[in-house]
Nucleic acid binder design. Structure first.
Length: 223
DNA sequence: GTGAGGATTATCT
DNA sequence: GATAATCCTCACG
């Protein structure tokens, strides 16, 4: 159940991998120093070549493109994209090379390098004071806290520098499951309850439904 | 070449 | 709750 975190785990479809990443520790090193988060919230996205229902919410739903190419690349590598022209988001690529799927890392608890993470967040915008549990809350904030940039990290191996990935040290606790955040159409409905988070963890981001989602006002479902 | 639409966040009402 | 910020990606002609 909680074996070593190695590359072979990422050969599976993202939907299987996603919940297993909860509680894992992810570090990103840089010339400024290292920041480590304990992953508390993730979402699975499938794509061409990965078994399961067609995922209309995925960047890799139709074809290989310049943007989504690393989702089709080797498992255990990073897929980084620019969201809304404003924020980077980090995914860990799953499925064998040639098939697309990935796990979006949506939130984490900063367990090391909090001072650097805070400095990066303050450089970003933030006039308001940032509390500890908000340092890496939400995919954009998490990427910023870790110092993720597309040009530097997209397509790189998560099992090599500057990344480190370690399996959960203890059973992470109760896992909740619900529809993905900000995904429009059926792909954002409870039919695609592909978001996983640690119940009651304060670092988990707020749920916000996408547009045109059936059952838009349903809060969330638990596993 | 052009235009619409984001796997978001912070801020304002 | 609503919206601006911001710019890349992709579809279309």
């Amino acid at each position: 159940m909680m074996g070593d975190m190695d590359r072979s785990q990422f050969l599976a479809p993202a939907l299987e991998v996603a919940p297993r990443l909860l509680g894992a520790r992810l570090s990103v090193d840089s010339e400024c120093g290292k920041v480590t988060v304990r992953i508390t919230e993730v979402e699975a996205y499938h794509g061409l070549g990965t078994p399961g229902p067609h995922d209309a919410g995925s960047h890799a739903r139709d074809r290989l493109t310049a943007r989504n190419a690393s989702m089709f690349g080797p498992p255990g590598h990073a897929y980084v994209y620019l969201s809304y022209g404003v924020h980077y988001a980090l995914n860990l690529v799953c499925s064998p090379e040639g098939a697309a799927s990935g796990v979006l890392i949506r939130a984490g608890e900063v367990v090391d390098g909090a001072a650097l993470a805070l400095r990066r967040r303050e450089l970003g915008k933030a006039k308001r004071a940032i509390r500890a549990h908000e340092l890496a809350r939400g995919p954009g904030n998490l990427a910023q806290a870790l110092g993720i940039h597309r040009d530097v990290h997209n397509g790189s191996d998560v099992f090599s520098a500057p990344f480190e990935l370690h399996a959960p040290e203890v059973v992470p606790g109760e896992i909740a499951r619900g529809p993905r955040v900000g995904v429009s159409g059926h792909a954002g409905s409870t039919e695609f309850a592909w978001r996983f988070w640690l119940t009651e963890d304060p670092t988990v981001s707020a749920y916000r439904p996408g547009r045109n989602v059936p059952g838009r006002y349903a809060r969330s479902v638990c596993a």
